[in-house]
Design a protein around this nucleic acid. Structure first.
Lengths: 335, 335
DNA sequence: TTGTATGCGTTATCAT
DNA sequence: ATGATAACGCATACAA
């Protein structure tokens, strides 16, 4: 069923039908509107968006680009990403847009994808260092909002959190509770994210004149498995009384790994997470963690994207969200 | 950059360029192929898929339709859905398709969505009773594979698991361990899923001549919160020694809720989950649960969908996957 | 208020 | 081996 057929049934031109569909009522008489609408309904006519988009040079599609976790089949190994994507879809749908999700490996993949469809905008979650944001923006005309990008690119749109503050708060909190042997589990690959979180940790130590020992550092992926290995190692070494992480999933992994080596949590080892995922409140012990407002992050990404798509330009290029420490049960005071 | 421009630059017709792009090499000379390819590369030409799809009447888009959880902003409140969607996207991308995700509330939403784009196929995860599969199939020409559909519709394509066996195994296991006061937490709304899982539970009880008491039943959503409330209730009542659930998230919620009422798990209450999510292995205590192969489920959905899209018709309409019980630490023997 | 012509970028068909 | 024409379904610009 096409506009043409509807037009024939209604005995009007295609344009009249088109105007009815697009509610350009000033251009059509009431009688015609009603007649056409009746026929549209009767025939269950639904506009062909491929055609509309070709004509309009705009697709009403927003791309959601997510990192492809190497060695993993699923994009959503991390519930953090899943939660964001869910909120994005919800907001986009309510705005009359469509959400196309795509995982990408390389810059060229990304460019091809974004230029293939007349994509109206994109939200890119955690662009890995392999994908150079600067290059990407040069090769693509789509508006892109980056969530958790730690490539500092002027003029790029991004939503981040105060990473420095997050680890700073966590470390400070442990120190207040009497801990001095505080491990730090984070991905090693140097990027700004890690730089910031590392500095937060380091500065808090320094302020209390605690020496950083390189054996305090544990290279981790953002995965349970990675956490488990670190937990086992920490339990065997018996050198630390506490450890902070850069993701709740890692923290939960550490707890599990340490426990398997007879290390009690938090009695023998205090653990602090990062993200405040839903599960952080239901694992055992309930996880003391750095809270970030994931929902707000996703919603702001949408706001910023549409601020630019609609050329309002009211919001700043870079938005940084605050974090806070949530006290639960995975930290034991030593004093 | 369009085909037309490439054609002009190369001094050939649009069709020749099109043939090169689509690798119809029998129709183009080697020299031309090379010349055209060079110009394409040089200009970073990328085909416009909107146009291609309009022409081809096919979009290379596969819709992933997920249930909208009422009162929840995120589609992926449940990691189970997130995992499936991740695997689907991965498989689709590898096949050269695009994944459009969409949550739907009503039948009409769904029909409009599927008919708007020239969508090549759809995978529908857990169609709620509100969306009548039979009606849907009548109003849509797209091939749809249903995952976890409990509306029995002849000729519809579906991937399910052996729900009856799942709860049967769980209940039987508890009985073997000496439990007789076994609760059952599941969504009450009557549909086939619940019917099947309920019967598995009930039959196992019957076979051991254990009477079912209506107070053993707890109406639950598939959510942590729902589990928590049930856990609290069970702990307060102190009537049960064990409870089985229809989702790991509910089981984890129950553990948390019961624990908050000083009920020790598994000492005072044994709990069995359902799904064997990743987290089931890392919560505390590690969850004894009914395992289903989520990855295989998603992969089979893709296989079945493309079996029909490509008109091979080698696979059966309905595929039912086996389940098994995974023994971990959330059940304590009473004998 | 309604209709006509044209273009969006691609591909199928049919000539040459 | 290459090219001309039409078609996919819709919307913009302009004419009547």
């Amino acid at each position: 069923m096409t506009i043409k057929e509807i037009a024939q049934l209604a005995g009007v031109s295609r344009m009249t039908v088109s105007n009815v569909i697009n509610k350009k009522y000033s251009k059509v008489s009431k009688t015609t509107i009603e007649k056409v609408n009746a026929i549209i309904k009767e025939n269950n006519y639904i506009p062909n968006l491929s055609a509309r988009n070709l004509s309009a040079q705009s697709s009403k599609i927003i791309a959601i680009i997510v990192p492809l976790v190497y060695g993993n089949d699923s994009l959503f190994s991390d519930p953090y990403t899943a939660q964001i994507v869910g909120i994005l879809e919800n907001n986009l749908r309510n705005k009359g847009y469509f959400a196309m999700i795509r995982s990408v490996k390389a810059l060229s993949d990304t460019v091809t994808f974004l230029n293939s469809w007349n994509i109206d905008g994109a939200i890119f979650i955690f662009p890995k260092p392999e994908i150079n944001v600067n290059q990407l923006l040069k090769q693509v005309s789509t508006e892109i909002v980056f969530i958790d990008s730690y490539q500092e690119v002027e003029n790029s749109l991004s939503i981040n959190i105060d990473d420095y503050k997050g680890t700073y708060l966590a470390t400070k909190y442990l120190i207040e509770k009497g801990h001095t042997k505080i491990g730090f589990a984070a991905p090693k690959r140097s990027n700004n994210l890690m730089e910031l979180r590392y500095r937060g940790y380091e500065d808090a130590l320094k302020q209390s004149k605690i020496n950083f020992d390189s054996s305090f550092f544990f290279d981790s992926d953002i995965s349970l498995l990675s956490g488990i290995k670190i937990g086992e190692k920490i339990a065997k070494q018996k050198k630390l009384t506490a450890v902070i992480t850069t993701a709740d999933v890692v923290a939960i992994g550490i707890i599990d790994g340490a426990r398997s080596e007879k290390c009690r949590i938090p009695d023998d080892l205090s653990v602090i997470g990062f993200d405040n995922l839903t599960i952080a409140n239901y694992c055992y012990p309930k996880l003391t963690t750095v809270n970030q407002d994931i929902n707000k992050k996703a919603e702001l990404a949408i706001s910023l994207l549409f601020d630019r798509i609609e050329k309002k330009n009211e919001l700043p290029n870079k938005i940084k969200l605050d974090v806070s420490l949530i006290e639960r049960e995975s930290v034991k005071p030593l004093n």
